[in-house]
Design a protein around this nucleic acid. Structure first.
Length: 266
DNA sequence: GCCAACGTTGGC
DNA sequence: GCCAACGTTGGC
């Protein structure tokens, strides 16, 4: 699940929410996801499901911590708050379109796992893994190669396979790589504490913010956008052909509208 | 700030 | 249903 650790003002409010903020608030509603695929994923989550906390849209994107689902999906009330950064004018009071889950902070990654490292691993052919992480098994490497984070990046909420989880956990616990070799910029990751707490933001990314729309709905609502985030769009049935994936929405629940076809998500 | 990837919109 | 224009995400 992605969040933005850097300040970004949306509708007059800062949507920043990094691992420091998360550690401070302990548990937070993952509001602001306005992407059907991401939303569907959240609707399929159960209490206790494990979560990788990712820093997005920042100098050093990567996995900063671990968390778990504390409450199953319920309507995202921020969609009805016109003053909220994630307000969605199209969502009707009697028909919640967006949902969120509560996520509880578990721990910080002992070693921040940079996206750059994961990409390096994914691109490497066996013999050329970056120095210092020889402890990764072939399976670990294969699992990383298949991560949605690497193969498609934009979704703010993505599924993580068991193997990938194990590989990330290993990297976070043991570290060993050289940031210089990986080409990481620095900056982010390390900070710690500080911050604010309170109102997180998230979204993001992907979902969060943005995106969204897709499908789903369509029909209904219409949606659109609002200023705030983006979002909007509506969906409509469209389908376009091109692309493939689309969001899919899926369906799950709600969904209203029709969904359409396509799919996506990771 | 640039820009590539990619999804959406909407005309035809 | 195809496809070009356009908007967004988000790494770099």
């Amino acid at each position: 699940m992605k969040a933005e650790p850097d300040s970004r003002i949306v509708k007059g409010k800062d949507v920043k929410f990094g691992v420091d903020d998360f550690e401070e608030v302990k548990t937070t509603p993952w509001e602001g996801v306005r992407n059907f695929e991401a939303r569907n994923l959240m609707q399929s989550m159960s209490v206790g499901d494990k979560v990788l906390f990712y820093h997005s849209n920042c100098k050093s994107p990567g996995i900063a911590g671990f968390a778990e689902i504390a409450k199953e999906a319920y309507p995202d009330y921020t969609a009805w708050d016109s003053s909220h950064p994630y307000f969605d004018p199209k969502t009707k009071q009697d028909a919640p379109k967006w949902h969120m889950v509560d996520v509880a902070f578990k721990s910080r990654a002992a070693h921040f796992v940079p996206l750059a490292l994961l990409r390096r691993i994914a691109d490497s052919t066996s013999p050329s893994l970056p120095a210092g992480i020889e402890y990764l098994s072939h399976d670990n490497v294969q699992a990383i190669k298949g991560m949605a984070l690497v193969t498609r990046g934009r979704l703010s909420v993505q599924p993580v396979e068991e193997g990938a989880w194990a590989a990330i956990e290993l990297l976070a616990d043991r570290g060993g790589w050289s940031e210089d070799e990986i080409g990481v910029k620095k900056g982010a990751a390390a900070k710690k504490a500080t911050t604010k707490a309170a109102a997180p933001k998230r979204g993001k990314k992907t979902a969060s913010k943005k995106s969204e729309k897709a499908d789903e709905e369509r029909a209904d609502e219409g949606e659109a956008s609002d200023p705030v985030e983006q979002e909007d769009k509506e969906v409509k049935p469209k389908a376009n052909g091109s692309r493939k994936r689309k969001a899919d929405e899926g369906e799950p629940q709600e969904t209203r509208v029709t969904r359409q076809s396509t799919r996506r998500k990771a």
